[in-house]
Design a protein around this nucleic acid. Sequence first.
DNA 1: ATTTAATTAGTCATATTTGACTATTCATAG
DNA 2: CTATGAATAGTCAAATATGACTAATTAAAT
Lengths: 178, 178
Amino acid sequence: MDERELLLLGLLKIQSQHGYQINEFISKNLSRVTSMKKATAYALLENMRKNGLIDESISQEGNRPQRKVYSITSAGDAAFDTLLKTYLAQPGQITFSLDIALMFIGNLPVAEVINLLDERMKLLIEQIETYERAPKHEYDLGSRLAVEHVLSHLQLDLSWLQSAKEMIVQEASSGSNG
Amino acid sequence: MDERELLLLGLLKIQSQHGYQINEFISKNLSRVTSMKKATAYALLENMRKNGLIDESISQEGNRPQRKVYSITSAGDAAFDTLLKTYLAQPGQITFSLDIALMFIGNLPVAEVINLLDERMKLLIEQIETYERAPKHEYDLGSRLAVEHVLSHLQLDLSWLQSAKEMIVQEASSGSNG
DNA sequence: ATTTAATTAGTCATATTTGACTATTCATAG
DNA sequence: CTATGAATAGTCAAATATGACTAATTAAAT
């Protein structure tokens, strides 16, 4: 089980919903905190149903095609509580694909590395601006914290990249004449 | 293709190796930058072989069982170069499981949230100490940067958690009397 | 010399994830 | 009314990822 189950259970705790509704909400509002795909969400819902964490019922409204409506069970409530405490208390391992790339910068000329990192910083600034443009008032504290958390990491990356560039330049000049 | 292919190609650029050697190196030295599992590495190697990025040959040394030795091809060299530039220049989306959990802190009493975040900070400090204990001198610049990059994010998280706790406490008190 | 444990070198069945696809209904423009 | 496109609501085959397993060799202890 991972944080995506926590997300799905949390959404179903707010209200019983069908899969499409859940996926719309995630893709429209939560793309900043998860990259879970639609088919994955359906798979996880089916999995949790098998494990008794949610119930599935069929609803028919007007002429619309049938929909599967999911509701959280009491076992699901208990699982939600456990997962929530777990993900609050336990720092997961973080890894960045950048770090793999950094290990191999020796394979490129220094000038090119600097150019590539400049390009990265440009794109990062765009990401940051997107986050900063997000309206902060209409969300509850937890959601605001989540967005600010990601934003603080993006800003760190930006200033970290600047100092990394300086170290790379310095090492190159000291290596070539020292 | 993702950064794990870059890692495997980069290791094979240094020298041709068999799978076991690659996996040993990753699990002993690179657990900080990737969580790729052994069977996954073998699958990716087979995949890259099919795509002509690496060659596979059988080697027999003494009585030891046969080993598959992988070498990078010129197509692999080209792919490495492309991947390296891509992962240097393109900031990937970062997501933290903590952020999902933060969205739902309203489901717990404030005091418990604070306790859980305190526990998190304790564990985070242990992680940071592990990283700080890592010897810095024996690595090249890129590897040192990779470790320092992760470390800087961990340190940010620590101070961010402190300020998040303060916001949570403040919101609780202003909500209960204002 | 022989059980025991550790290391070496992978394989495979199962579980997970997703891109691509199907199929219905609704809106709206002509 | 009716072709066109968008929204709704999923499904499924194929690709990925991994825990559990096999099987040989070497090292250590008895």
